[in-house]
C-alpha cells in the first residue's frame, strides 16, 4: 500500500514536471506571439538554416590544404594521411616540383566525402600541417557521388 502510494506520487511528480514545462514554455511562446519580447525563450531550438550556431574551434568540417606563401599547396604528398585514413577516402597523386626545396607536390588530392568519416586522423598525421578541417563548411551534399569527391589540390 505504501509502495503503491510512492509509485503514484512519483507518477504525479513526473506528470507535474512535464506539465510545468508545457505551461511555462507555452506562456513564453504566447508572450512572443503577442510581440512581447522576453529574455527567456520558450524553446532552445536553433532554427538552423536561418540561424546558425558558431562552430567549435575543434569542429571537423570540410578539409582544406593550407597554401604556401607562393600559392602552391603546402602538402608534400607524403601520403601519411592516405595511410592513416580509416575509411580509405583520400587519394593523393604526387608530382615533381622544379623547386629543389619543395620537390614533391600533390598533383591530385581528392577527398571522397562519400566515405570520409571526419575523424580528423589525416590532420593529426600530417607532418607539415598541410591538411586541416577548419573551413567551417558543413553543408556537404550533392546529387551525385562524383559531386562529393572534393579536389583539394588547388588551394
Amino acid at each position: 500500500m505504501i509502495k503503491a502510494w510512492r509509485v503514484l506520487r512519483e507518477l504525479v511528480r513526473g506528470a507535474a514536471i512535464t506539465a510545468r514545462h508545457f505551461f511555462v514554455n507555452m506562456t513564453f511562446h504566447t508572450l512572443r506571439l503577442f510581440g512581447i519580447r522576453t529574455r527567456r525563450r520558450g524553446a532552445v531550438t536553433i532554427q538552423y538554416p536561418e540561424v546558425q550556431k558558431a562552430l567549435s574551434p575543434r569542429h571537423h568540417s570540410l578539409h582544406r590544404i593550407r597554401p604556401r606563401p607562393d600559392g602552391k599547396p603546402s602538402c608534400v604528398a607524403c601520403m601519411l594521411c592516405v595511410t592513416v585514413c580509416p575509411s580509405e577516402c583520400l587519394y593523393v597523386e604526387a608530382a615533381e616540383d622544379p623547386d629543389p626545396e619543395v620537390q614533391k607536390l600533390p598533383a591530385k588530392f581528392v577527398v571522397d566525402l562519400n566515405r570520409c568519416c571526419f575523424c580528423g586522423f589525416c590532420v593529426e598525421a600530417c607532418p607539415v600541417d598541410a591538411i586541416r578541417m577548419d573551413t567551417g563548411e558543413i553543408r556537404l551534399a550533392s546529387l551525385t557521388r562524383a559531386g562529393l569527391e572534393v579536389p583539394l589540390d588547388k588551394p
Binding site: V76, A77, C78, L80, Q103, K104, P127, V128
Partner: peptide, 9 residues
C-alpha cells in the same frame, strides 16, 4: 629528415 618526400621512407 625529409622522410615525407623521401622514397626510401
Amino acid at each position: 629528415l625529409d622522410c615525407p618526400i623521401c622514397d626510401k621512407a
